[in-house]
Amino acid sequence: MIWNLGSINIDNFYEVPHLPAPGETLAAHSFRQGLGGKGANMSVAVARAAAPISHIGAVGPDGRWTVERLMEYGVDTPHIASIDVPTGHAIINVDAEGENNIVLFQGANVRLTEAIIGAALSEASPGDTLLLQNETNGHEYAAVTARSLGLRVAYAAAPFDAAAVERMLGRIDLMVLNEIEAQQLEDATGKDLPALGIADIVVTLGAEGCKWLSGGDKRQFDAYPAKPVDTTGAGDTFTGYLVAGLDRGLRMEAAIDLALKAGSLMVARRGTADVIPDLKDIQDEFDT
């Protein structure tokens, strides 16, 4: 079982001819709204990868539909609190090449209490996994609690904050971050990634695939061919599938391969949680 302490956002997408420059007013070609947030994206990815997932989070009165959407996608939702604070939301500009920039309002995502988190984790069992990102509060309390209960802690270090990551060192078993974040973390700590004391680190490399660091070993994995139209949520899809694969008992190599396949399909779709591929999509595309 996976317990995801994660954000829930209302994503507002604007297709634009190019990403706005400072001071520029730009007309969008189209607008659409959907379910998002790194936490919600990962929960949906886990569910679509056929692993059991319970989401721990919070929404405001404007976000009740997001909880219903998560339920429709197979995510367990009893530990999503409804509070009197606006739901987190994001303004996402996507250009013709599929690149994006994002303005994020955290809202209810950073109003979680230890009582909310503790009540959820009290239902966890040894051997379960706690998944974390940097779009909510409560990471340190959740990680310490999870470790005391015998859970494995997986941490997606995004949006990247070196100080937040440093506070998590010694409390996580698996970390996922991209190449730029990895360099920033090494610069901040003065240590190479293998010296941070984390059992498994996966560094995503975009179109180049990813690398897996475990102990003194390093292994490179090539990406699958893709024609990107929107990179939003691709990293979250990769992480959700990776953690789901491990929860289902796959070896790390097989879980990474599955996650790379899911990510390659995701970048060819426009949207976030609502368009994350499921296992059948992967089987149909890769004939597995």
Rank of each mutant, 00 (worst) to 15 (best):
R48P: 05
R269E: 12
V16I: 09
L19M: 05
S148H: 06
L132P: 06
E140R: 09
R111E: 11
C210L: 09
R69N: 14
T25Q: 05
L70D: 11
R219P: 09
D161K: 00
L196F: 02
R147A: 15
A262K: 05
R69M: 15
N12S: 09
G170F: 03
V46G: 04
T136F: 02
A50F: 09
R171M: 06
G63I: 08
L260F: 13
F31Y: 08
V176Q: 03
I198C: 03
A273Q: 01
S214G: 11
G240M: 03
K218N: 13
Q33P: 07
A96D: 12
G127C: 06
Y73G: 13
I80P: 07
S43Y: 04
V176A: 08
I282S: 01
I117Y: 00
E72D: 14
T189R: 00
L19R: 05
V176I: 12
G215D: 01
A244Y: 06
A28T: 01
R171G: 05
M266N: 13
A255C: 04
V110A: 10
G6C: 13
R69S: 14
G209E: 08
F238D: 14
R111L: 07
E140L: 13
G249W: 08
E135R: 01
V85T: 13
K191F: 07
D222N: 12
E97K: 14
K227Y: 11
T239G: 14
I91L: 15
L132F: 00
V153E: 15
P194G: 00
R48M: 05
D62T: 10
I102M: 10
V67M: 08
S214M: 10
R69W: 11
G271Y: 09
E208Y: 10
E208L: 12
F160S: 06
C210V: 05
A199K: 03
Y241D: 02
D287K: 11
P277Q: 01
G63K: 06
G63W: 12
Q106R: 14
R111I: 07
Y73N: 15
S148G: 15
W212D: 01
P126E: 11
G263E: 03
R147Q: 15
I83G: 00
I80N: 03
P86C: 01
P52Y: 09
N4L: 10
L242Q: 05
P159C: 14
I201G: 02
A115W: 07
F105R: 01
H89P: 09
